[in-house]
Design a protein around this nucleic acid. Sequence first.
DNA 1: ACTACCGGCCTTTTT
DNA 2: GGCCGGTAGT
Length: 735
Amino acid sequence: MFFQDDTPDLLRHLNPQQRQAVESNPQTSALILAGAGSGKTRVLTTRIAWLLQNAHAGVHNIMAVTFTNKAAKEMNTRLSAMLPHNLRAMWLGTFHGICHRLLRLHYRDAGLPQTFQILDSSDQTSIIKRLLKQMDIDEKILAPRVLQGFINAQKEAGLRAGCLEAPDPYTQRLIRCYAEYEQLCNREGVVDFAELLLRTYELFNTHSALLSHYQSRFTHILVDEFQDTNKLQYAWLKLLAGGGAAVFAVGDDDQSIYRFRGANVGNMAQFLQDFQIKQAIKLEQNYRSVGNILAAANAVIQNNSDRLGKNLRTDAELGDKIRFFSAYNDLMEAEFVVSEIKSLQRDGADLNQIALLYRSNAQSRVLENALFQAAIPYKIYGGLRFYERQEVKHALAYLRLAVNPDDDNALLRVINFPPRGIGTRTVENIQAAAQESGTTLFQAACKMGKKVAPFIELIEQLRAQVGVVSLPELVQSVLDLSGLVAHYRAQKLIAEQERVENLDELVNAAIGFRVADVQLDMLPENLADNAALPIIAFLSNAALESGENQAGRGDSAVQMMTVHAAKGLEFDAVFLTGLEEGRFPSELSLNEAGGLAEERRLMYVAITRARKRLYLSMAQQRMLHGQTQFGVVSRFVDEIPEALLHHLSPKPKNKNLNDNSHLYFNQTAPAISRQELPREFDGFRVGENVRHAKFGVGVIIDARDKNDGSADLTINFGVDGVKTLNTKFAKLDKI
DNA sequence: ACTACCGGCCTTTTT
DNA sequence: GGCCGGTAGT
């Protein structure tokens, strides 16, 4: 064993905290609390390089786990640039990707068919709908999404239907459905996302030789975004590291924003305890944002209790103040954003470096419209991704049937698409026959006679090509023989022609697909004998990867996305819109325990995306879901020290108003002035702002005449909540 | 069997 | 305001 003497090189660009993290004891576990913009990925990758260079581990001893494919790719790229090693033997991937790999390798021990397929969320939804129909349960009584949430939550808690019990009939029914769902998936050879993890966990638990093999192989496990792990992922990790592996976990409790899908911040404290870590290492030096922005972020997040405790600092200059704008309505808010972007553009800003953020996707439309009108290029993230498009899913369903005709979900998807005269009645007959004989739909359909014969014939034709022709050729066959392309081509709408292009793109994806890229060191004897291997790999990849949404990256465009989607990204200028009570923080989150704290972390994530400039804006009136909503400023804006804020005012046309003057309410409202004024209730109108001695400023959201000349006003006071006050008793001032 | 229209619904999102 | 699901009509 020899030690390379270039270690200092590797560490030269690290600050003392980062260096302490990278050089922490290679034999023990560590928790790195990495604040936003503190060089988290750099520490993670440098740690791996350091372990290798100092021979603390070989490439094959390392497992690096991330949450997204993007993060995994990023890490792979950085490592390849840093190291002379061949990284093939290192396991680097998402939790789901790694579990998938383990299940493919040990499918027999895991009790799965070799050709098992992965369900994405929408596949899971349709299975559940089918299940409810089969069990004769009204969707109005038990919503599919409720059942889906229940099943996923149970799996994430590590619980099978068989070990669940409930006193109340409602939960009992949920459990029955869960049990039925498990059977259905097993029969069809499909596995949902949570199942990938749970199966692997159970596989390890029941096959001790297998577990100890991997325990002794992976002596170093590194985990990114540790605050996002759920209970099952943590248990999985603990099990795998149980042989004494050193776990290097990097995370930021202040950026935990996925509790709603099972992420458990408590895992960080649990980890410190379970792995006997004396103290977490904190990275508190921020390299991203100017001083004022960082100060605002720190001020907001300080309102949360139960933090592990961390305060970011920077050596950067203070920079501009944070600009705040209160618009009369959502249209004017969008107008404001447009004019500021134009001004940034005049100053030579790169549009790619401008982000337009919002709490929920529904808010994007008005903003998009305004940008479009102003001819400012924009790119919206978070729409449908490639493999989620219906035409692509249709094509993949045929492909699935070619590998496994027992995939009922895939069969139902395309048995009559494109339309071939197999209606609901016929499908019901097939389903009844299948249930009767306990077979899959395909098996039942084969005995149905001439109505479905052409479809069966089509599937058989595709099956016959498996292993005979190449993957891209098979995809092409699917498109031709199924009539999918012909169907879309026959449509007049331009949107349908785009679908043809997407299907062509699918063939390209198949051409570019390398099995080796996905299933790195799958044991040859396991699958090499199976002619369906390339197709299975291609389908699994489609489900796990769902397709990059990054096309058109080259042209310069304003980046539009939800705050969630912005996590991990950074921009020179950030517009954070819709800062109203009820929107951000979201009304729905306020009802649940810990909901407000999570919204505040979301606000913290949003603020810390900005490098140089941050704009905050709100709309006093907003059209949402077809009705006008009235809003007061978000409490999160109030949590930012006044000294950091610069209030901008709406500028009435042809008037030169002092920018430092106070906010103008209702001064200019071109979009609204066309409307009639709302009815008066004892001198007040719905939508107006009022001031109350105790509750402060609020907005009237509803009014009701009493018969004595007074009126009951329902007023939203923001932080102080919604109150109903009578004009005769409450002292209310119009403002 | 298929299409066209009406009514209810609505966080956040990755795998 | 837009999507999905159910229903009525061809």
